[in-house]
């Protein structure tokens, strides 16, 4: 129980630090969001009004404190009949988009999650399968071909791969829709149909990483004494591979997977852009392009939370996957 609470405390601390740093860096940055929403032509008076309304006239620390308290109590911008309400948990309000950041994230997250989780499953399966075949057939033509391909895929830019995929399968062959997102709740088939190409694009690039990782790890493990023991027991090669080989590569793979998925859940910027998916990533670049600080801060915080959560999940899984981990931690923490 103490371990869990320590873990939670650590997560909250990380989020606090990240939120503060993001705040400091962005608010202190030269771009003035009030200037961006002052209108044209802008006058000093109007600019001051805009600043006051958006809350940028307060000192930095006070702004940060309002931001933090807003998460728990909500915030109100302005005092007239046109005052803007941002209900708790309020991560700020985008005046440009006219919506609370929390709502924006909640709106966009399903898109990014659909994209990320689908792609992650795909790349895990493809990557581990390819890596395993490569490791087992080490040194053969198949292995070399797979690894050469994976080098190419690893170094391929997502944007380009996406574009090429679109050109081939979307425009030329007209097999898949070229843009857009259909919510799962609306039509699961359309949902998957629209996502299949983005999934493949994202998965292909990451699968290459996992193929290499799996191959290296598996070759390492297959060289271990206990694999020799397993063979000396008379186990079938398939069992040796699964129970003794792959099973022992799970920890590094799960570690990579958790972190990759965690960072992807914060938005797959390029892929979302290419496929015109209204996810967190496209929301973020858009916010960057328009100095929409509340959105930038909100998404940064959300992404951090995802990564921190993924980290925690990975740690928990380590305990399940590798009995030595729990043992060591008991030694340190209890």
């Amino acid at each position: 129980m103490t371990r869990v609470s320590k873990r939670l405390g650590g997560m909250i601390l990380v989020l606090l630090i990240v939120s503060f740093l993001t705040y400091v860096v962005l608010i202190a940055a030269p771009a003035d969001p009030a200037l961006m929403s002052c209108g044209r032509p802008c006058t000093p008076d109007r600019l001051a009004d805009a600043r006051a309304f958006m809350g940028y006239d307060e000192p930095l620390i006070a702004q940060y404190v309002s931001f933090l308290t807003g998460i728990f109590t909500g915030r109100t911008f302005g005092s007239t009949a046109a005052a803007v309400e941002c209900a708790a948990p309020c991560l700020g309000y985008s005046f440009r988009l006219g919506a609370p950041v929390t709502e924006l994230i909640a709106d966009r997250a399903p898109v990014t999650f659909s994209l990320a989780i689908g792609a992650a499953v795909l790349w895990l399966v493809l990557g581990v399968a390819a890596g395993t075949i490569s490791a087992v057939k080490r040194g053969t033509l198949l292995d070399r071909a797979a690894m050469t391909l994976s080098v190419a895929a690893v170094s391929a830019p997502a944007y380009l791969v996406g574009l090429i995929g679109l050109l081939i399968f979307g425009f030329t062959l007209d097999m898949v829709p070229v843009s857009g997102y259909v919510p799962l709740t609306e039509s699961p088939i359309d949902w998957a149909w629209h996502l299949i190409l983005p999934w493949l694009v994202l998965a292909l690039i990451s699968a290459a990483v996992y193929a290499r990782l799996t191959r290296t790890q598996l070759l390492d493990v297959l060289g271990e004494d206990f694999v020799r023991t397993a063979r000396a027991k008379g186990l079938r090669e398939g069992v040796v591979l699964r129970r003794h080989g792959l099973r022992n590569t799970l920890v590094p793979i799960v570690t990579y997977f958790g972190l990759d998925l965690g960072s992807l859940l914060g938005g797959a910027v390029l892929t979302e852009r290419v496929f015109s998916m209204p996810g967190l990533g496209s929301l973020l670049i858009d916010a960057f392009g328009n100095a929409d600080l509340p959105v930038i801060i909100g998404i940064t915080l959300f992404s951090t939370a995802m990564i921190v959560a993924a980290n925690a999940a990975v740690d928990l899984l380590h305990g399940v996957l590798d009995p030595r981990v729990t043992h060591v931690q008991k030694g340190i923490f209890s």
Binding site: D225, F226, A232
Partner: peptide
């Protein structure tokens, strides 16, 4: 078969 290094001859997981 029995091998030399008992700690590494067993699968840790």
């Amino acid at each position: 078969t029995i091998f030399q290094e008992p700690t590494s001859a067993w699968n840790p997981v």
